[in-house]
């Protein structure tokens, strides 16, 4: 295991940020800490980095006990949500900081910084100040800075949170390629389930300071452990006590034995996919996802009455 947190508890006054949390992160993996705000995911990341001291529990990094170790000695690279650039230093000096503060030879520093700037596609921007960079460039600078001292573990706090949508998608793909090349164990924090599903090998779903489930993306989506995971990861409908994904519902014009009836409120065509908004007698609303061909065949229109049949329906015992 590259990283292990055992029974970690952290309180801020009366607020319990982490409540007996245990996770294991495999060496070389890309793990997401996923959860709504206030779920404790950033606190857990900061405890692993040594920026917060846990009230109880232990942290192991690369098999070594790190619970009481200062952040300087953990061999951890950390990228802050707003990148925390050193504003008075150039991009080059920012990236060099981890090496120059360890008093490495000048030639070695220069070589490594140039390599990293090339890797994060900031070659030629080394003399600029952080304020002269775009959000995406600043993010990559922060990443290069964190990677410079060759950390065993890379921790990213909401790495794409402060970027606009297009840049975010580009950077995601880029980070994935980077991770494939570098193979440094990486944990990133996100509240965006799509981001977690796309990037991570393993997802830790957190809620109210507790771990709800740890699983690979596909398993998390197909076999959620409880209602929270089901509703937080992926789109979902509630049919009475049962939960159904929008793409697991079939629509028919005739009952065919189905007792579930609903009226079409709206048909939204989104390219390949068509979304049908339904309302049931009891006022419950549903979204159904169909391919364009399916929708065309059914000739659905607003106001139509349709009958529902579900493929994977799920109920959880509380």
């Amino acid at each position: 295991m590259a990283i292990e947190a055992r029974n970690v508890t952290k309180r801020f006054g009366d607020f319990v940020a982490l409540d007996d949390v245990s996770i294991e992160v495999e060496s070389g993996s890309l793990t997401a800490l996923l959860g709504p705000s206030g779920s404790g995911k950033s606190t857990l990341l900061r405890v692993i980095a040594g920026l917060e001291r846990a009230d109880a529990g232990d942290v192991f990094i690369s098999g070594k006990e790190a619970t009481a170790l200062a952040p300087q000695k953990r061999g951890v690279g950390f990228v802050f949500q707003h990148y925390a650039p050193f504003k008075h230093m150039t991009v080059w000096e920012n990236v060099a900081f981890g090496l120059s503060s360890r008093k490495r030879p000048k030639a070695e520093i220069a070589k490594r910084v140039d390599e990293l700037l090339e890797l994060v596609q900031l070659k030629g921007l080394g003399k600029r100040y952080p304020s002269q960079l775009s959000g995406g460039q600043r993010q990559r600078m922060a990443l290069a800075r964190a990677l410079a001292p060759e950390p065993e573990v890379l921790l990213l706090d909401e790495p794409f949170g402060a970027l606009d949508a297009r840049v975010r998608v580009e950077l995601r793909e880029w980070l994935l390629r980077l991770h494939d090349e570098m193979h440094v164990t990486t944990i990133f924090v996100t509240h965006d389930q799509e981001e977690a599903l796309e990037l991570a090998d393993s997802i830790v779903v957190m809620n109210k300071g507790r771990v709800e489930q740890i699983a690979p993306p596909r398993q998390l989506y197909d076999e959620p452990a409880n209602e929270f995971v089901m509703s937080f990861v992926g789109p979902v409908n509630k049919l009475g006590d049962a939960w159904v994904r929008p793409h697991d519902i079939e629509l028919r014009h005739e009952p065919n034995g189905s007792t579930r009836e609903a009226q079409i409120e709206r048909v939204v065509r989104l390219g390949f996919e068509t979304r049908v908004d339904l309302v049931r007698d009891d006022g419950e609303r549903l979204h159904v996802q169909l391919t364009r061909d399916e929708a065309d065949q059914l000739e659905l229109d607003a106001g139509d009455i349709v009958y529902l049949r579900t493929r994977h329906e799920r109920t959880f015992t509380a």
């Binding site: 920026l51 300087q72 802050f80 650039p85 360890r102 800075r145």
Partner: peptide, 16 residues
Amino acid sequence: TEQEEAAATLGARAFT
């Protein structure tokens, strides 16, 4: 404190 925390994770001692 973020810049100071960043420096700490990069291995800088308190005085540095």
